[in-house]
Design a protein around this nucleic acid. Structure first.
Lengths: 297, 297
DNA sequence: CTAATTGATAACTCATAGGTATTAATACTT
DNA sequence: AAGTATTAATACCTATGAGTTATCAATTAG
């Protein structure tokens, strides 16, 4: 089972598989087209597998070629990660973890995690990037992200999910709004207000959950603004453009002039969950997963 | 992030990492020692990572080298699997699945699985091997096995486990034994019999569970024989060397002259479980997992 | 019917993987 | 202490094959 095959062949194959065009791929690889053709042919002979179907004027992947494109592109990425990790070990670091997170996780859980991790393991390099839920899932699937913090209910098959923070919702009202904690009875008191909500594009399932809150209260809200930043929501509410509803963890540390009413009587909760890819071989991931699971919020 | 590095370097590195001896590794690789030394050096320069510490008369792996040995040997194996799978696709097959199983799974669940799978997907190649529990776990960890059938309670972290068959226990008695289904009352009736049991080396947790059955009945059995084959047990029981206790699924289709008493009143059950490695990228595995989970026994 | 575009083929060249011979450094032996 | 054995590294050589240029064959577009 020992091939003559080299990483070079794999890189060349992936280039052709992406472009489906020998000349273009050759240009991109800075080699000549005949050289590329020969290497691909050699790879096919080595493996005993036809990778491309050469038609008159177009190149197509075979079944086996399609499979190999998918697998090998992951393979080279993982190999790259492995060498990067080895590089960090060489420098005396313990490793690196690429974190993705929705903004609201930055309020508490991420800073806590970083502090505690720095304490227990100062040699872990963290790589933080704020991303929406879907971007994180994509990132996990192709190993650009090791660990994500999302507000999602369902995730693809290979992704693991575990809630770390169960959150109630809070109404966000301008300071001068007639209703406050004292005279608040039920949600339908707000059926004539217009609402500022998080953009469903950011998280469809989160948006649907919020809408369900209003459905349960017997009315459909008029939504006047959609945004993806809580600070924008607060600014808009403060200036009487409408009212809003947000996870409780987002109500901390606002300097805006708004007031909050916690809705602990409704059944909806929004989970902040950690997500990761089962296939991820980053040894740091296991450590940090344990840390997060035992993190006291 | 594009290296000059080739698979050749990785293979050479693994050889040296295993032998910790350049000359021996070179011999094994059928190349000269200086050639090998140079390739390793080139790899170290390429990666910017020192892989080995060359001491006076011995070679040692660095931290990064140790990590790379572990990871890269898995990569090489996965790459090999990937090409094998592609090869099967090329031949019009759907893929291959390497199954490990304890003997008792062959009684029912494995034949069922194979039959149903052949029906739904005639192009899957199955690769069967009877192995003890621990061998299967080892095989899963280094990807020699895709799916195992074990009698275990606990498995390592990266291994997933799911029970597929809950089994009661049965006493195995010689035909001429004074006790039978009619006059059997409780287990302690057998406290003076000597027992033939499955060797604890085969599965420690299974053995302990069986011993617990007797502890619960208030006595410690005298164990006269240990074996790993149910047929040996039946032969020995038939010839009055003692009595035994086995999972119910093993009582089928015996031509031996023994009788069985089902122990459905005791609390112990033995689970036959499927086990697999989370990191396994064999696309067939997902299909077969679904099949097994919905298999009617 | 010509021009353009595709991948494959042929013949050449030069970079380098791997070879031989040797050195340097150290560790056993006596 | 001197001699022998064992290790990996160094220096230099060579021959395989990756990559080149030029060209072909087959097709399509205008």
């Amino acid at each position: 089972m020992s091939y003559q095959l080299e990483l070079r062949h794999i890189h060349y194959f992936l280039a052709v598989a992406e472009d489906l065009h020998f000349r273009k791929a050759a240009e991109r690889l800075y080699i000549s087209q005949p050289g590329l053709s020969r290497q691909i042919k050699q790879m096919e002979e080595d493996l005993g597998i036809l990778l491309f179907e050469r038609h008159n004027r177009k190149v197509e992947l075979t079944k086996a070629g399609t499979y190999l494109k998918r697998e090998l592109s992951i393979y080279v990425k993982q190999l790259d990660d492995t060498f990067n990790h080895a590089h960090l070990l060489h420098q005396g670091k313990k490793g690196q973890l690429k974190l993705g997170y929705v903004g609201s996780a930055m309020q508490q859980i991420i800073p806590n995690l970083l502090l505690q991790s720095k304490k227990e393991n100062p040699d872990i390099v963290f790589n933080l990037k704020e991303m929406d839920n879907q971007k994180q899932i994509d990132g996990l699937l192709n190993f650009d992200v090791d660990l994500g913090f999302v507000r999602l209910e369902r995730v693809p098959n290979n992704i693991e999910i575990k809630p770390v923070l169960k959150d109630t919702f809070c109404l966000v009202l301008p300071k001068n709004h007639p209703i406050d904690t004292l005279n608040f009875k039920k949600l339908s008191q707000f059926k004539d207000d217009s609402f500022i909500l998080f953009d469903p594009e950011y998280s469809k399932s989160y948006y649907e959950k919020v809408i369900q809150i209003f459905e349960d209260a017997g009315f459909t809200p008029s939504v006047s603004h959609l945004t993806i930043h809580s600070s924008s929501i607060y600014k808009l509410v403060e200036n009487n453009f409408g009212i809003s509803i947000v996870p409780k963890s987002l109500t901390l540390d606002t300097k805006e002039k708004v007031k909050f009413i916690e809705l602990d009587m409704i059944k909806q909760r929004t989970d902040l969950s950690i997500v990761w890819n089962k296939m991820n071989r980053n040894p740091i991931l296991t450590d940090v997963l344990n840390l997060v699971k035992h993190l006291k919020i």
